[in-house]
Computed example of a mutant assay.
Amino acid sequence: MAAPMELFCWSGGWGLPSVDLDSLTVLTYARFTGVPLKVHKITNPWRSPSGSLPALRTSNGEVISVPHRIITQLRKEKYNADYDLSARQGADTLAFMSLLEEKLLPVLIHTFWVDTKNYVEVTRKWYAEAMPFPLNFFLPGHMQRQHMERLQLLCGEQRPESEEELEKELYQEARECLTLLSQRLGTQKFFFGDAPASLDAFVFSYLALLLQAKLPSGKLQAHLRGLHNLCTYCSHILSLYFPWDGAEASPPHQTPAAPETEDEPYRRRNQVLSVLAGLVAMVGYALLSGIVSIQRTSPARGLGTRALGMAEEEDEE
């Protein structure tokens, strides 16, 4: 009997099954299709077989770590949420996917990773509390830099020179995009009728993060909450497909330790690597900041001295 597929993704918070956009998208698509997965919700990307999240380990041991490729693999396994779509609906899916990436993704990155108030009070706070020591000291900052680089790529060379102008332009386009989505959805349960498709997995993930997070600076959040059909749409998907993920859980590292599993050797290895990396980072910081200095002495002085059909688990760090 083939081993079950395993999905490694960021853990949940803010009333959502995952706080990460890509992880939430893959989780939602998997729940829509009922694919049998063993889900590892973790807060340490080093425990993923690819070193990043989300990541899918197939039944033959192949590791896939890009959301679109993960969904393509699930389709190959005959779990296709778009199977009944017409050619026109397929074309609409591609068009709206491009719209999401062009108009909503930049603002989502800006909201959670660039806006100082949101980053400090919401994003960094969650990751710093959820991640194990010593990763929580330096990994959130590293992730922020990665997201800022991604935002620069998305905005391209035509971006306004002024940050204020850029922010104004991004948020204006995002509001127009949300309004268009609201008009396209209308009174339907999902974008193509009574059954969810892959487009719904992506749209839900974008909208749910904006709706659920308690953002101190919520420019786009206020506009979204005024579009009642989109709010109802998100609530419907949460209650129908994630009924036991609605309550906000405590950070995983505060819960009792899980029993030892077959992943234990990797866990021990990564714990050791985590501690070593933390020590190196702290020593480097101390040297660079002048807290600790190294002085040479003459020889005479001597020498000094780590579902629906889905079995889910909250993995401990």
Score class of each variant (00 low, 15 high):
Leu279Tyr: 11
Leu279Ser: 07
Gln188Thr: 07
Leu287Ser: 04
Cys155Val: 07
His147Leu: 02
Val107Arg: 06
Leu209Lys: 07
Glu173Phe: 00
Gln89Met: 08
Met148Thr: 11
His147Cys: 09
Ser48Tyr: 03
Leu220Pro: 04
Gly284Ser: 15
Val275Lys: 05
Ser298Pro: 10
Tyr233Pro: 03
Tyr79Cys: 06
Ser52Arg: 08
Leu94Trp: 11
Trp113Ala: 03
Thr261Arg: 12
Ser11His: 13
Leu209Asp: 05
Leu7Gln: 03
Leu287Asn: 04
Gly304Ala: 14
Ser23Met: 04
Ser65His: 10
Leu308Glu: 13
Cys9Thr: 07
Ile71Arg: 03
Thr255Trp: 15
Pro251Thr: 12
Leu21Cys: 08
Cys155Leu: 12
Leu104Gln: 06
Asp82Cys: 04
Leu181Gly: 15
Met310Thr: 09
Gly90Ser: 10
Phe133Leu: 08
Arg267His: 13
Pro67Met: 11
Tyr119Gln: 00
Glu149Ser: 13
Lys219Asp: 05
Tyr171His: 10
Ser205Cys: 03
Arg31Asn: 09
Asp22Tyr: 08
Thr93Asn: 06
Thr179Leu: 12
Asp194Val: 12
Asp84Ser: 13
Asp115Trp: 02
Gly186Asp: 11
Thr25Gly: 03
Pro4Ala: 05
Leu227Val: 09
Leu230Asp: 04
Ile71Ala: 00
Leu166Phe: 14
Leu56Gly: 02
Arg296Phe: 04
Pro140Gln: 02
Lys103Glu: 08
Leu180Arg: 13
Val272Cys: 02
Leu209His: 05
Leu94Cys: 06
Ala311Pro: 11
Pro252Phe: 05
Thr28Met: 01
Arg75Val: 12
Cys155Phe: 07
Thr305Tyr: 15
Glu62Arg: 06
Phe133Ile: 09
Pro134Trp: 03
Glu317Cys: 10
Thr187Gln: 10
Met97Asp: 10
Thr28Lys: 08
Val280Cys: 15
Ala128Arg: 07
Arg57Phe: 01
Tyr79Leu: 03
Ala249Cys: 15
Ser11Tyr: 12
Glu62Thr: 07
Pro259Met: 02
Glu165Val: 07
Pro196Cys: 04
Val107Leu: 00
Lys189Asp: 14
Val66Glu: 11
Val66Asp: 07
Pro49Arg: 02
Arg269Trp: 05
Glu77Met: 03
Asp115Ala: 08
Pro45Asp: 12
Glu176Ile: 00
Pro17Phe: 03
Arg47Trp: 04
Tyr266Ala: 03
Thr116Trp: 12
Thr179Asn: 12
Phe96Pro: 09
Leu276Ile: 06
Lys78Ile: 05
His68Ser: 08
Phe96Tyr: 15
Ala286Lys: 04
Arg268Pro: 05
Lys219Ala: 08
Arg301Gln: 10
Gln212Lys: 14
Leu105Met: 13
Ala174Thr: 00
Leu104Glu: 06
Leu240Cys: 09
Gln152Asp: 12
Val280Met: 14
Ser250Trp: 13
Pro49Gly: 02
Ser65Cys: 04
Thr261Ser: 14
Ser86Ala: 08
Gln73Ala: 13
Arg145Glu: 09
Asn60Ser: 12
Leu85Gly: 04
Glu163Pro: 12
Val114Asp: 13
Leu279Cys: 06
Phe190His: 13
Ala174Glu: 00
Val63Glu: 11
Leu7Trp: 02
Ala277Lys: 13
Pro132Glu: 09
Pro252Ile: 07
Gly246Trp: 01
Phe96Asp: 13
Glu260Gly: 02
Ser23Asp: 03
Pro265His: 02
Met310Lys: 04
